[in-house]
């Protein structure tokens, strides 16, 4: 790891000022992703601004009946928070499906939002990667791409966003609040992450010195919800496919649905098309399948990840089926 200047920020103002003053600086919170990438020489910042002690660790109820979550709240604390467990169980499930208990005790909400891909070629400096070094190429196309994306990819990058938490946040219509020396702004989660296009190294719409300070969740829906993660081990593995879903069924008809996918795209993937097809449709396996097909129709596959289309389809259908059953029992 390259040595660097270390700034411990006691408050947000100091943190964003330090970042503004040192181009290329990185904010360090839990360290679970950044320290790893620095050790792999993928990230080589000259300045690290330690934000891990900023007082952004609370959960507050908002006037509109939602929650405002401090960006430095640990993933485990958020998962175990009584208001999250009771009102947004899908978020608790998504958080607990990620990483290991130790990592969840370190990783923060803000850091989780900014997790970088686990594409093995991104991690290996000896191979070309447009995301790591723009213009060098993509070794995943024509290489190992079983874990790679099928939606939202480009010729330059097929990497997935690895977060579980973000998939639930996408389904929940979360809004991210950020701050820099110029002030604060709010970004809907859907607009936080970019698709790769020709610039896969630009992963979010944040300015380099902008700091995520909190995440706001709108008031919860009453519908049954679930986070379902499919992976290569029973635990402690990244998603091949994951589904965050909430389904409200009235008289056998889908009254409302929220659906987001993980493991299939360069960003947490809100399944807008599937939601459109489903809303107002009968809550049947046939509709679920039609919705999944509609969402997955634009999928582009590589040699190794063709199975993800079928796996995503089946996981969507199974999750919605379970939720419909749960709803009818309630």
């Amino acid at each position: 790891m390259k040595d660097f200047a270390y700034v411990a920020a006691p408050d947000v103002a100091t943190a964003v000022r330090a970042a503004a003053d040192a181009p290329g600086a990185r904010f360090l919170a839990g360290g679970t992703n950044l320290v790893d990438l620095m050790r792999q020489h993928v990230e080589r910042p000259d300045t690290v601004v330690d934000i891990s002690r900023l007082p952004l660790t609370s959960v507050e109820e908002t006037k509109s009946g939602g929650l405002r979550i401090g960006a430095l709240m640990r993933n485990s604390d958020l998962a175990a928070h009584p208001l999250v467990r009771t009102r947004y169980p899908m978020l608790t499930q998504a958080l607990l499906a990620g990483a290991s208990a130790q990592l969840r005790n370190m990783a923060t909400v803000g850091g989780n939002l900014l997790q970088r891909t686990r594409c093995p070629y991104f991690y290996d400096r000896a191979t070309p990667c447009h995301k790591r070094e723009p213009g060098t190429g993509c070794a995943a196309v024509g290489g190992f791409n079983r874990s790679h994306a099928i939606l939202g990819t480009s010729a330059s990058c097929v990497a997935t966003h690895p977060s579980d938490m973000c998939v639930a946040l996408a389904a929940l219509d979360a809004v991210v609040e950020v701050e820099d020396v110029r002030g604060t702004r709010r970004i809907p989660l859907a607009d936080l992450h970019r698709l790769p296009g020709d610039t896969p190294h630009l992963e979010t719409t944040l300015a380099p010195d902008e700091l995520i300070t909190s995440v706001e969740l709108p008031a919860p829906a009453a519908a049954p919800s679930r986070y379902r993660k499919v992976r290569d081990r029973a635990s402690f593995a990244f998603a091949l496919v994951s589904v965050a879903a909430a389904l409200e069924v009235t008289d056998g008809t889908v009254a409302a649905v929220r659906l987001a996918l993980g493991g299939v795209a360069p960003k947490p993937w809100r399944a807008v098309e599937a939601e459109r097809v489903l809303t107002g449709a009968p809550a049947t396996e046939e509709s679920f399948r039609a919705a999944a097909d509609a969402e997955l129709a634009p999928a582009v596959t590589l040699d190794g990840n063709e199975f993800k289309v079928e796996l995503a389809r089946r996981t969507i259908v199974a999750t919605l089926r379970d939720l419909a059953r749960e709803g009818s029992r309630a």
């Binding site: 320290v35 130790q102 005790n105």
Partner: peptide, 24 residues
Amino acid sequence: GACGACTVLVDGRRVVSCLGLAVQ
């Protein structure tokens, strides 16, 4: 952070000590 062998307790909570910087 992938094996847990470095797990220690910080203020009673388990963490992987390989992914934290000592200065923190």
